[in-house]
């Protein structure tokens, strides 16, 4: 055991070095993911022990007892061995106990309901065919695709689906929970550090299941209050009245900005400050680590508005052609939305 422990510690170190900090379950950024990672480490350690023992016996047996050429001897026909059989029944039971107890503790710990907790931030998550809606009932605010939460508080989620089943997953912050149509689930998460974390849909939901990413952004409590205030402020519409009218009639029939429009499609308030368009097109002028293939917010918006099916097959957004938008209008709307940033 003494020899194996440093080995395991080394392995844990290796594992924790893996992957992006904003995505990997092996580099937890919050207490929920941390607890899950601790359980993983316990189980991986126990299981490594089992694997090592079995492999060692296996290799020894296969080498030691291989048949030599021309060997005609008949080995002793052993019926069994009660002592051995009891050993390999009891030891696994003990190992399972070691894993079982913290499992039970965490199962109940993670199911703690903070929905009535006044200090917790309530967020209602509604999954749609390929986008995420986040509603803050305490503040009367709704946003989409980019969840904004304050650090240091319990975030109590109510999860439901508007159509098919999806699953809400922010790997580096905590495990997933399904969003079922017709009945809601609860979970809580905590974000101790400021940052932007990657979220995924984990349940097959159709062609664009793979592209149903979202972001979870944790900000300081003061900044969060400013964000809420900015979200509640009246909408800033396009300066050009003609463009404003086009935007109102074509886009706000489904979308919303500030106090305008409806929430049938993703809320666009402050979209210019979000890291991505449609959850997957990274905005090179917003993200901290732009990649060579990333485009600017304006370019991404134009790409998306022109032909949404090309970006996210099977989504509900009509193309620019269906919406009868001229190239000038697309350009104007993209520029207006890219400039629509909230100060918080």
């Amino acid at each position: 055991m003494k020899r194996i422990l440093p080995l395991l510690a080394g392995m844990a170190l290796l594992l924790s070095a893996c992957g992006r900090a904003d995505l990997s379950t092996l580099d937890p950024q919050g207490p929920v993911a941390q607890k899950q990672f601790d359980l993983m480490k316990i189980s991986i350690s126990i299981m490594t022990l089992v694997v090592v023992v079995v492999f060692a016996i296996c290799v020894y047996v296969l080498v030691r007892f291989r048949r030599r050429k021309g060997d005609k001897t008949i080995p002793k026909q052993v019926e069994g061995n009660h002592k051995l059989e009891i050993i390999w029944t009891v030891i696994p039971l003990v190992l399972l106990l070691i894993l079982g107890v913290p499992t039970i503790q965490s199962v109940f710990g993670m199911a703690t309901d903070y929905s009535k907790d006044k200090n917790a931030i309530q967020v209602k998550v509604t999954s749609h065919l390929y986008w995420w809606e986040f509603e803050y009932p305490q503040y009367g605010v709704t946003t989409a695709q980019e969840l904004v939460v304050p650090t240091g508080k319990k975030i109590s989620f109510e999860l439901v689906s508007a159509d098919v089943k999806h699953a809400f997953w922010i790997p580096s912050i905590g495990g997933k929970m399904d969003t079922n149509p017709g009945s809601s689930n609860r979970m809580y998460l905590e974000f101790p550090k400021e940052g932007v974390y990657r979220g995924k849909c984990a349940e097959l939901c159709g062609p664009s299941h793979a592209l149903m990413d979202f972001k979870a952004k944790s900000v300081s409590p003061e900044s969060f209050d400013r964000w809420i205030a900015a979200m509640k402020a009246p909408a800033s519409m396009p300066a050009d009245p003609k463009l404003a009218e086009t935007f109102r009639s074509k886009c706000l029939a489904c979308h919303a900005v500030g106090d305008q429009g409806t929430n049938g499609a993703p809320n666009l308030t402050g979209i210019g400050g979000r890291q991505t368009i449609a959850g997957i097109l990274y905005n090179s002028d917003v993200v901290a680590d732009p990649q060579p293939e990333d485009k600017t917010t304006v370019e991404n918006l134009k790409e998306w508005i022109t032909d949404p099916q090309k970006v996210k097959p099977g989504n509900q957004m009509p193309s620019a052609a269906d919406n009868q938008l001229t190239p000038e209008e697309i350009d104007g709307i993209a520029k207006y939305l890219a400039g629509y940033k909230l100060d918080y």
């Binding site: 694997v51 699953a167 495990g175 997933k176 984990a202």
Partner: peptide
């Protein structure tokens, strides 16, 4: 035998529900 042991131990890992919230559907 060793292959199935590997599949078996990940099965036990998956059995731990809170950790499975991370593994599930991944």
């Amino acid at each position: 035998i060793p292959t199935f042991v590997l599949g078996g131990v990940t099965g036990v890992m998956l059995a731990s529900a809170p950790a499975d919230y991370q593994y599930h559907d991944s």
